[in-house]
Design a protein around this nucleic acid. Structure first.
Lengths: 155, 155
DNA sequence: TGGCTGACTATGGTTTCGGCAAGTTAGACT
DNA sequence: AGTCTAACTTGCCGAAACCATAGTCAGCCA
């Protein structure tokens, strides 16, 4: 196991208490297996209830519960659609808040893929075919290393 | 087999079952409140047991349990250190696998900050002072929109 | 030697998550 | 009218997460 030390431990430990940030709600929403897998499948293109249940491999009861929570949280919406000879059904589609979750979901999936033996799917950019990764950058476009992060209180 | 994700429902739902990826281990590790908050504080610069306990606001019992799991999973390591007049203690520092979690943790924190009323801390780049954000980019450096993601089976 | 403190470890109780099983409801088909 | 099915809903159970409290252990100091 390799360890990259920052070399600034003593000073860094004096950083004051970070602001409480609303991570509890985030974790309550997608901090469970089913919700995250459901979101992954929605990102991968699934939208119908039975399709999501089959892909995630969870019981329909749990899937229904998590989907309801995701809809209530404003991450997914139910869009009515009708296929010929079928009655009206509802497709689960991402809201803008749901779209904003893409980096988080992708980052979690990538870490799991990179740091365990199982391997995983390869996600690439349609325009150029290059593999996709999640990066930490500042607004000026620089790739930011962990040591260069500054945590500030809100203005 | 590769599938392009487009915005169209009918096509998107035909995407076959995604590869199983090792998300269970990931969620078992950081899919709980305490582990994620501990990691956040380590990223923010904390390293000592009592400091982490105080910052996260969790009982020492739970913190010890989660820290042990994080060490066992290879995300953190215990580095011995000694302050004058004190006995040897251990600091919790990130391994390379732990460093790789930065995008995921930051993305979760950012989503929570952006999509709830509470607000949150502002993370900036030390070199230029610009706010930091998590981006999805391909290896060629393009910012990748969700509709331009291609999910392929492993080669 | 005895007290103090930091870093845990152990126990018990409540809430949440997921699996299993059964029931419900609305519309299409016969 | 009766059957079938997709999409849920409800209830029970075991496991895991969290909290609170109490106990342990190792070194430093008086």
């Amino acid at each position: 196991m390799t360890v990259r030390l920052t070399g600034r431990l003593a000073q860094r430990d004096d950083v004051p208490l970070g602001d409480r940030c609303p991570i509890d709600r985030t974790l309550q929403l997608i901090g469970n297996r089913t919700a995250l897998l459901l979101l992954r499948e929605v990102f991968y293109g699934a939208s119908r209830f039975d399709s999501l249940v089959k892909r995630v491999g969870v019981t329909d009861a749990v899937a229904a519960q998590r989907l309801r929570e995701l809809v209530e949280a404003g991450v997914l919406t139910k869009e009515p659609y009708r296929e010929p000879g079928q009655r009206t059904r509802h497709a689960y589609v991402l809201t803008t808040a749901g779209h904003d979750l893409l980096p988080a979901v992708l980052a979690l999936l990538q870490w799991g893929t990179a740091h365990s033996s199982g391997g995983g799917p390869i996600v690439t950019h349609a325009d150029c075919g290059e593999p996709v990764q999640v990066e930490v950058r500042c607004a000026a476009g620089h790739v930011v290393d962990e040591d260069d992060l500054v945590v500030g209180s809100r203005r």
